[in-house]
Simulated assay, not measured.
Amino acid sequence: MVALRDRVLSVDILRGITIVLMIMVNTPGTWAHVYPPLLHAEWSGYTPTDLVFPFFLFIVGISIVFAYQGKSVDSATYRKIIVRSLKLIGLGLFLGAFTIHFPFFKDFADIRFPGVLQRIGVVFFFAAILYVNFNWKVLIGICASILIGYWLFMGFVPIHGVAPTFDRAPNNWSNYLDLHILGTHMWKDDYDPEGILSTLPAIASSLCGIFTGLILTSKKPSKEVVLLGLGGALLIVGSLWAPVFPISKANWSSSFVLVSAGWANLVLALIYYLSDVRKIKFGSIFRYAGSNAITIFFLAGFIGRLMGSIKVDGENSIHSWLFKNIYVHDFMSMELSSFLYAFTVMCFYLLLAYVMFRKNIIIKV
């Protein structure tokens, strides 16, 4: 762990903002009425919501630098990395399998194997192992190789003699592998946004965070300017790549990795300048959420499942009853009602994070 006096406040704030946004976009009052920026792009392109998860993986990379820079690489280090990865994967699998009905787990065929926490665990494992074994020059080469290799494989290697596609189709390599390896254990019948092959470029997202972490822990002056330059460069390269490898969170395309890392650097540069350079005090509530980020996210997922499953009147779940009876009114649009419900949920978990912080309850996963 990094001593409190050595922490980069902007990273803590960005982590907290990211985790509560992940919760908010996952819990609208009704999925039938959501403002477009709070939805994922249908396939290609991206919305602000599509940037939230890669931001978190980016911060995972920064945290790896803070946690392991200068540490000796021994069996204890590898053991800690492995244990943390398995905890994250285990929590994700539990959320995917849990049901309120006895015996409290879904039928095996209905359990979704991939998921957000599972991807965080896998990405953390590989990014951390790479970081403790290679210098930044080798890591840049590995990151570039992942992104270019993923593009070439996805775009040019035929599937049983059929030209591959980046679209949502059976001849999309990511969809094809998920369907033939995971079978029924996917989010949708034909693809999973946290699938097997697309986890590879997700590791590159975390490597981009490692490069930013190395900048933040260096003695370089005007780090906010460096981050702005890096963010702008990544945005440009990703946008130039997009015509031949479309930006897509569903595929976690290489252009998406660069564009999302570009935005992450730009946002971090602004927060870094305000909090770490100008010493303007703001965003403490998000720091509290960031200190228990995984715990808060897991609780939001678990409680959300309970509220969506437990019936209060034989017809409506707790979730739908609260939404219909408190947030739905003739004088406001359904989109606004749905947003206010999600905003309330986000505020609840911010308050929970604050209480946990004040009581010095820090649960490290």
Results as ranks from 00 to 15, higher is better:
residue 143 C to W: 13
residue 91 L to S: 05
residue 215 I to C: 02
residue 152 L to I: 12
residue 263 W to V: 15
residue 149 G to L: 08
residue 145 S to W: 13
residue 319 H to Q: 12
residue 294 I to V: 15
residue 105 F to R: 07
residue 336 L to S: 04
residue 106 K to T: 08
residue 259 V to Q: 09
residue 10 S to Q: 04
residue 362 I to Y: 09
residue 364 K to D: 12
residue 52 V to I: 15
residue 173 W to L: 10
residue 210 I to D: 14
residue 104 F to E: 02
residue 17 I to Y: 02
residue 71 K to C: 01
residue 50 D to C: 07
residue 189 D to N: 13
residue 339 F to K: 01
residue 2 V to K: 13
residue 311 K to A: 12
residue 267 V to I: 14
residue 321 W to Y: 14
residue 195 G to L: 04
residue 262 G to N: 10
residue 109 A to H: 00
residue 131 Y to E: 03
residue 27 T to H: 09
residue 140 I to W: 03
residue 329 H to S: 14
residue 214 L to D: 02
residue 43 W to P: 00
residue 131 Y to A: 11
residue 287 R to Q: 11
residue 70 G to I: 03
residue 159 I to C: 12
residue 264 A to N: 10
residue 265 N to Y: 09
residue 226 V to N: 00
residue 158 P to H: 14
residue 195 G to P: 13
residue 24 M to R: 02
residue 57 L to T: 15
residue 28 P to K: 05
residue 6 D to H: 14
residue 32 A to S: 07
residue 23 I to S: 08
residue 2 V to H: 02
residue 211 F to R: 06
residue 140 I to S: 01
residue 84 R to T: 07
residue 264 A to L: 01
residue 86 L to Y: 05
residue 253 S to F: 06
residue 118 Q to M: 13
residue 343 F to V: 00
residue 339 F to V: 09
residue 78 Y to E: 04
residue 123 V to N: 05
residue 105 F to W: 04
residue 296 I to P: 00
residue 343 F to A: 11
residue 254 S to A: 08
residue 135 N to T: 03
residue 8 V to S: 03
residue 325 N to C: 00
residue 302 F to C: 01
residue 57 L to W: 02
residue 314 G to T: 02
residue 341 Y to P: 09
residue 132 V to H: 03
residue 69 Q to A: 15
residue 76 A to H: 08
residue 22 M to W: 08
residue 115 G to A: 06
residue 105 F to I: 15
residue 223 K to H: 02
residue 86 L to K: 03
residue 169 A to S: 15
residue 289 A to N: 01
residue 102 F to V: 13
residue 303 I to N: 03
residue 289 A to S: 13
residue 26 N to R: 03
residue 214 L to R: 09
residue 50 D to R: 07
residue 237 V to W: 00
residue 277 V to G: 13
residue 150 Y to C: 04
residue 63 S to D: 03
residue 60 V to T: 11
residue 150 Y to N: 10
residue 68 Y to C: 06
residue 115 G to V: 04
